[in-house]
Amino acid sequence: MYEITSGVVSSAQKVVIYGPEGIGKSTFAAQFPDPVFIDTEGSTKKLNIRRFPKPTSWEMLKNEVKEAMNGRLCKTLVIDTFDWAEQLCIEAICSAHQKKGIEDFGYGNGYVYEKEEIGKFLNLLQEVVDSGINVVLTAHAQMRKFEQPDELGAYDRWELKLGKKTSSQISPLVKEWADMVLFANYKTYAVAVDKDGKKFKAQGGDRVMYTTHHPCWDAKNRDGLSPEMPFEYSGIAHLFAYTQPAEMPKPVPAPTVQTAQPATRKSDEPLTDLSGFEDVAPPPIVIPEGIPKALADLMRANNVSESDIRLVVSQRNYFPYDTPITNYPDDFVQGCLIGAWEQMLPLIRENQKVPF
């Protein structure tokens, strides 16, 4: 038997904000409850916000999303921007299949791989929302000529900037996934004319956001917002006022340890009793020069040394243990180390448990 429920269900929300560059998407997103940014393009340097390191690979981006969710680090996770995140996805797919570009797959197969990977990523973001954390995706907008088959003429239409050929596959996924899609733009409310009645200058420039679908742009909401509003967070703040915050992990009190004073000894007497001395923290991971930054970032974030990787690589019979990572072929580093990091990391962890 299934239990039937009724009424409004309160939950975290999935929001997409897109518009032309410089209109203030990042500043708008920074006003959501307790945000943490994953800044994929480095555009938040002037904002006083909390942020993860800029991801240098698709795997690093996914790891940061999981860390925000599992650590309950925020009430809102912002990916700024999603079209730059898409480029990390494409790079990962091309590296995994040893292709120079997405077009090299032929017959649109590359875009099929991308659609599948983006779909998995949106499922991961859904897990973030299910954990009680809002997710905000910002994106740039692009204008293209649109023609309806049953209508005469054509008109300009604003869309999510997710690549000219991928927009027909990726944009629908993102729009369907979102609870709210907001299109921000500068409003032109008048056009000046000269003495002969010819139009020559647009007037206006107010920043507005559109919340419902229009032939000239994509937008939607499920909260009864006005179709056009000032591009200010105060207009939607009430929708997030009652969002249940993600529970922060309760700190575990450290056990009280009685520290004994080391006994006095003669200068020539060997020190055999180490009681009373505090444990020394392990040294930080040293990343050799020449290792690609995307791999170095993953190693540093997961406390993985070069020897850890070389051990797994030798166990899989790819290269001898004494082969430095800098001597690995680039396609192996990009496809088998960075691209398959999630599959390799458990093998590294197993080796780290074994005393050598």
Results as ranks from 00 to 15, higher is better:
Glu269Leu: 06
Thr56Asn: 08
Cys74Thr: 02
Gly339Tyr: 00
Pro149Ser: 14
Lys75Phe: 05
Leu173Gly: 02
Ser167Gln: 09
Thr81Glu: 03
Ser314Glu: 12
Gly7Lys: 06
Pro270Cys: 05
Ile325Asn: 00
Cys216Val: 09
Ser11Gln: 15
Asp279Gly: 13
Asn327Asp: 09
Gln13Thr: 07
Ala92Ile: 01
Leu47Ile: 04
Trp158Leu: 15
Pro172Asp: 01
Ser234Thr: 13
Gly101Gln: 11
Ala154His: 15
Gly197Ile: 08
Phe121Lys: 13
Pro215Tyr: 02
Phe200Cys: 05
Thr326Cys: 06
Phe32His: 06
Ser43Val: 06
Lys45Asn: 14
Glu306Tyr: 07
Gly42Glu: 05
Glu21Ala: 12
Ala281Ile: 09
Arg207Cys: 04
Arg72His: 11
Asp331Lys: 15
Ser267His: 11
Asp130Phe: 04
Gln315Lys: 10
Met299Gln: 03
Leu274His: 11
Pro270Thr: 03
Ser43Met: 09
His140Phe: 03
His140Pro: 11
Glu114Trp: 04
Asp80Gln: 02
Glu269Cys: 06
Pro172Lys: 12
Val193Ile: 08
Val16Asn: 14
Arg72Val: 05
Met299Ala: 02
Asn317Tyr: 07
Ser6Leu: 13
Gly235Asp: 08
Gly106Arg: 00
Asn221Asp: 09
Ala340Arg: 09
Trp177Asn: 07
Met229Ile: 10
Asn109Glu: 14
Thr259Asp: 15
Leu61Gly: 00
